[in-house]
């Protein structure tokens, strides 16, 4: 019973992760400049990766419940992969934004109230 629930939850979060990943990618294509694109890039790093890894973790939990002890190490590695992504993603985002602004790129804007 609980295994079926975990299985469905796993597929749901993998599909959710794919959804956010594709939306983030569409954002990278659609948005107008590098700063706005970084917001979309952050989406793939946080929610896309997070939900996919959550879904895979559910699968390993199902495996553990079937008595496969080797899945414990898989679960630990998944947690580490996510932790690394969480710690490194904001730093590379910040480094990119900083490098772009230091090099003199002007952020794109559609604020025309100031001009009027």
């Amino acid at each position: 019973m609980i295994e079926t629930v975990l299985d469905y939850a796993s597929w749901a979060s993998i599909l959710g992760g794919l959804f956010f990943m594709v939306v983030g990618t569409i954002g990278v294509l659609r948005l107008p400049d590098v700063f706005t694109r970084l917001h979309a890039a952050g989406m793939t790093d946080t929610m896309g990766a997070g939900l996919l890894i959550l879904g895979m973790s559910f699968q390993t939990v199902v495996g553990i419940m079937h008595g496969e002890t080797s899945y414990w190490s898989v679960l630990i590695r998944l947690v580490f992969v996510y932790a690394f992504l969480m710690f490194t993603s904001p730093i590379s985002t910040h480094a990119l934004a900083r490098a772009a602004i230091v090099s003199g790129l002007e952020p794109w804007t559609n604020d025309h109230e100031d001009d009027a």
């Binding site: 983030g24 990618t25 990278v28 890039a41 793939t44 790093d45 990766a49």
Partner: peptide
Amino acid sequence: MAVNIFGT
């Protein structure tokens, strides 16, 4: 940035 996302 694209390469970074590609890596993730």
